[in-house]
């Protein structure tokens, strides 16, 4: 009976991990990430480098509207640095007492500035393809970190028998292989001050680290809380088992 119970539980959980999401895409390479596993955490230096990659490259087309400058405190910037970063952007605010909209420098409470006024403007500027908001991109894709890393590093010359339209690019990890985004990264495209290698693979890994944090800023505190909760529950289960044993000892 117990075997059946375990089996049915196991089967129920297996259903939770459906196997055939992407029938045509090539599985992206499986990288080891610092945030993987029950004790994984973010690498602060990689997060800051990743933010630099986002700022200098991705943010030209991709918004991250769920992130605010104040959130950068999580990845190791202090208040002064955050104020300075925010002030580099100009935001439209208002109306003022005269009823006019006015421009002002950004504040830590402002959200990341979107590159386009709205989705239609974004599409018009990108040949009809909408660059998705990146705030949740890691959680919005199956196997998100490896998927995004794969896309960023998977650009290739198209096979001889495939003709691409202008504005299309060949990517071995994109489902269907045709992608509107031109290869965004190139070696030495971004200057790293900490001496990390300025290579596409490094840029891609760093920006994935950053985007994973952006998708799930609570990841570290979630795992930390989990340890405490699990220890508590296990001790509680042990104590309850002892109580149950003791009480039932005289029952039969």
């Amino acid at each position: 009976m117990r075997k059946i119970a375990l089996l049915s539980l196991a089967l129920l959980f297996c259903l939770a991990a459906p196997s055939a999401w992407s029938s045509e895409a090539v599985e992206p390479p499986q990288k080891d990430w610092s945030f993987d596993g029950p004790t994984g955490t973010f690498d602060r230096a990689a997060l800051q480098r990743g933010y630099k990659v986002y700022r200098e490259v991705c943010s030209a087309c991709h918004a991250m509207k769920h992130l605010a400058f104040r959130n950068l405190a999580d990845i190791g910037y202090d208040e002064g640095q955050i104020k300075a970063i925010a002030a580099e952007y100009t935001f439209v605010d208002g109306p003022n007492d005269e009823g006019d909209m006015y421009e002002r420098p950004g504040l830590p409470s402002d959200h990341f500035k979107s590159p386009f006024a709205n989705d239609n403007a974004a599409k018009a500027a990108n040949g009809g393809a909408l660059p998705p908001d990146l705030s949740l991109i890691i959680k919005a894709r199956h196997d998100g970190p490896n998927y995004v890393y794969g896309i960023l590093t998977g650009y290739e010359e198209p096979p001889a028998d495939k003709a691409l339209q202008p504005g299309q690019n060949w990517n071995k990890y994109m489902p269907g292989h045709v992608i509107a985004m031109a290869p965004p990264l190139s070696d030495d495209g971004i200057v790293y001050e900490d001496g990390s290698p300025q290579r596409i693979e490094q840029y891609a890994a760093d920006v994935v680290e950053f985007l994973t944090w952006a998708s799930e800023p609570s990841l570290e505190s979630r795992k930390r809380t989990g340890v405490k909760v699990l220890i508590f529950l296990m001790v509680m289960a042990g104590v309850m088992y002892a109580i149950k044993r003791k009480i039932w000892a005289g029952a039969h």
Binding site: M236, V239, M240, A242
Partner: peptide, 9 residues
Amino acid sequence: FLYLSGAAF
């Protein structure tokens, strides 16, 4: 004692 510890948990 068992009850108490159970209740405390």
